[in-house]
Simulated assay, not measured.
Amino acid sequence: MRRENGSCPLMPEEVGLLLRAMAYPSQTIIYLAGSETFGGQRLLIPLRALFPNLVDRTTLCSETELLDLVSPEAPLLADNIFRPALQKSEQQVIDEWKKAGPRPRPLPPPPDRPIYQHEKEGWYAWITETDKEPDPSPMDLRKQAHRLIWDALDYMVSVEAHAFIPGFNNDGSGWPDFSGLVIGQRLYERASSRTYRPDKKKIATLFNIMRDDMYHPKRNWTLSVKEHLNRSLSEDGLIWQSLLSKPKSFLSHPLPECSCRIPSVEIPKQIKGKDGRILYGGEEQCPKWMHSARAGGAIDNDKESAEDNEDAVEQLESDVTDVTSCLTSLIDHDEEWDPND
């Protein structure tokens, strides 16, 4: 049900089938951003079988090159490392058994299974012991900072790519997502770049048609995929993206506010949304909300410049006072000086 509503992401295998339907050759180099999101290399096997030149940041960069992206870091004290209880020796167990009291006694419980380090990492370390999540440790914060740097690297590669197809965007949370930010940046910098905007509902319907034989689609299915993806590159895709993404995140579709202003006579058509905003087409003047933001910024700049001028005047007055006092002291010294002394 969620898949038919367009709430599920496109899996790597499905993206590979879409690219093959668009007649991309198998030698095409594909960069997969956020490869760990899909659950490991196992789910990437079908996509790698279709396009062997599948790469990500871990295959393009060595571990040393990735660590060079962050500045030298001081070692952290491992205070929160889980240490299992000390194992008792055989002699200690025998002595405790002899001192346990009168017989008959129940047999001692079997020895506990050793607890490994990977079983005490992440939320596994506290979910069975406490009800509240503990504060992140310095090591957790450092790992989160590293993930942000790796995401920034994926973002730069995605923005500069020859073509971009999002696996998942518009999750409905109202917050900007990775794919939405990439689409908005590519639209702002190079509107002519090949950025696919597939409708996940339509794609789910197409895959349901040939779910039994996905690797041998019929010609009609291939033509339908080509038509849908090519339309997502045209004006229809821009209008659909603006209707879907812009009310939730301006950064995912920064047009026409961040585009050049041209007279409305030269515009073939203007499409407006329910709130009156222009979704596609130019504007003769900037929107009202941009005017108010610009006015607020101008007022702040005027205040800052006035404060800077006041500071400069005060500094100049203090300098003049210092120079005057210095000259006065020199004159007094000359009057008191006697050459016969």
Rank of each mutant, 00 (worst) to 15 (best):
E121S: 02
P136T: 09
L187V: 01
E96K: 11
E96L: 10
Q91Y: 09
H146P: 00
V55E: 13
A145G: 07
P108S: 07
L148Y: 13
I165G: 01
F82I: 05
E129T: 15
I149E: 09
N53H: 14
I149F: 04
L77G: 00
A100L: 06
K132A: 12
V70N: 03
R103K: 07
P166R: 08
T59Y: 02
M156H: 10
M139N: 01
R103E: 13
W123F: 10
D171T: 13
Y116D: 03
E129G: 00
A191V: 04
S71Y: 02
D140P: 00
P72A: 10
A163R: 11
N169G: 03
S179D: 15
P108T: 02
P176S: 12
K98Q: 13
T64N: 11
E129D: 14
M139E: 14
P52M: 08
S71R: 09
I94P: 00
I165V: 14
D151E: 14
V159M: 10
L148E: 13
E96N: 13
W126N: 03
P102F: 07
R113K: 10
Q144N: 08
S179Q: 09
Y188P: 00
P166L: 10
E119L: 05
K120S: 05
D140A: 14
E73F: 01
R113P: 01
P138R: 08
